[in-house]
C-alpha cells in the first residue's frame, strides 16, 4: 500500500514539475492518435453514408462485417501490419516499420470499423426523408451529406470521441509496428507497458492519470454540449 501511495505521489510530482520525458510521450501519443482520427474520419463518414443510404448488393453483409470488426484485436492488426511493413513484406520498401507513420496506419485501421458502425447507427436515427428533403431542395450529394451530418452532430462527435479513445489507449498495434522507441514512437500505452514490466510504476501511474483525465474531459465536453442543446429545445 505504501508503495502505491509513494508511486502515486512521485507520479504527481513528475506530472506537475513538467517532466520532459513524460510530456514528450504524451505529446507523441496525442499527435499520432489525433492524426490517425483526422485522416480516417472522412473515409468513415463516406462509408457510413454509403451503408445508410446506398442501394447496392451486399450492403447488409458489409454492415455485418463492419460491426464484427469493431472488436478487432489491436494485436492482430499490429501483427498483419508488421508482416506487410517488415523488410520481407510487400510494403517493406516504404521503410515505415517502427515509425509514427506505421502507428498512424495501424490506429486508422483500428478506428475505422468503430467510427463507421457508430456513425451508421446515428444516420439510421435520421429518417430517409431528411436526405430526400435536402436533395429535392437542391443540395448536391456533398451538401446533403453536410446537412445530415449537422442533424446527427452529437452522434458524430460521440463516434469521433469513442474512436479517439479506442486508439489513444491501444497498446498491441503501437508496440508491434512502432517499436516503443523513446523520443520517436513511445506513446502512453507502450510506455506504461514498458515501465510496468520494469517494476517502475511512477511513470506508468502518471501516464495512466493523463489518459483517465483525457477520457473524463472528452466525455464531459460531449455531455455538456449535448445537455445545452437539449435544454435549448
Amino acid at each position: 500500500m505504501d508503495g502505491l501511495i509513494g508511486a502515486s505521489a512521485e507520479a504527481l510530482r513528475l506530472l506537475f514539475t513538467g517532466d520532459r520525458e513524460i510530456w514528450e510521450i504524451v505529446a507523441i501519443s496525442f499527435s499520432v492518435s489525433f492524426r490517425a482520427i483526422l485522416y480516417i474520419v472522412p473515409l468513415a463518414i463516406l462509408s457510413a453514408f454509403a451503408l445508410a443510404y446506398g442501394n447496392f448488393p451486399g450492403r447488409r453483409v458489409l454492415i455485418t462485417i463492419v460491426n464484427a470488426l469493431v472488436a478487432l484485436p489491436a494485436v492482430v492488426v499490429g501483427l498483419l501490419l508488421y508482416m506487410l511493413l517488415s523488410s520481407s513484406g510487400p510494403f517493406g520498401g516504404w521503410r515505415l516499420l517502427f515509425t509514427q507513420g506505421a502507428m498512424i496506419i495501424g490506429q486508422m485501421i483500428l478506428a475505422f470499423p468503430l467510427l463507421v458502425a457508430m456513425i451508421h447507427v446515428s444516420l439510421q436515427g435520421v429518417d430517409l426523408s431528411a436526405w430526400q428533403t435536402a436533395r429535392t431542395l437542391g443540395a448536391s450529394i456533398f451538401r446533403a451529406m453536410f446537412t445530415i451530418m449537422r442533424e446527427v452532430r452529437f452522434g458524430l462527435i460521440a463516434a469521433i470521441v469513442a474512436g479517439f479513445g479506442r486508439v489513444v489507449s491501444e497498446v498491441g498495434c503501437s508496440i508491434m509496428v512502432g517499436g516503443n522507441i523513446l523520443h520517436h514512437t513511445r506513446n502512453i500505452p507502450t510506455a506504461i507497458a514498458l515501465e510496468t514490466s520494469k517494476g517502475e510504476f511512477e511513470q506508468g501511474i502518471a501516464l495512466g492519470a493523463v489518459l483517465i483525465t483525457l477520457a473524463l474531459a472528452l466525455n464531459f465536453a460531449v455531455a455538456t454540449v449535448r445537455g445545452r442543446d437539449m435544454a435549448r429545445h
Binding site: 426523408s129 431528411a130 428533403t133 429535392t136 437542391g138 443540395a139 448536391s140 446537412t147 449537422r150
Partner: peptide, 27 residues
Amino acid sequence: NAVYLHQTPYLFDRSVEDNIAYGLRFR
C-alpha cells in the same frame, strides 16, 4: 425543376427562417 414534400415534412434542426432559406443558399 421539381420539389417534393413528404406527408410528414422533415424540417431541419434549425430555425424556421433557416429552414426556409435552405434551398436558396444553393443558388
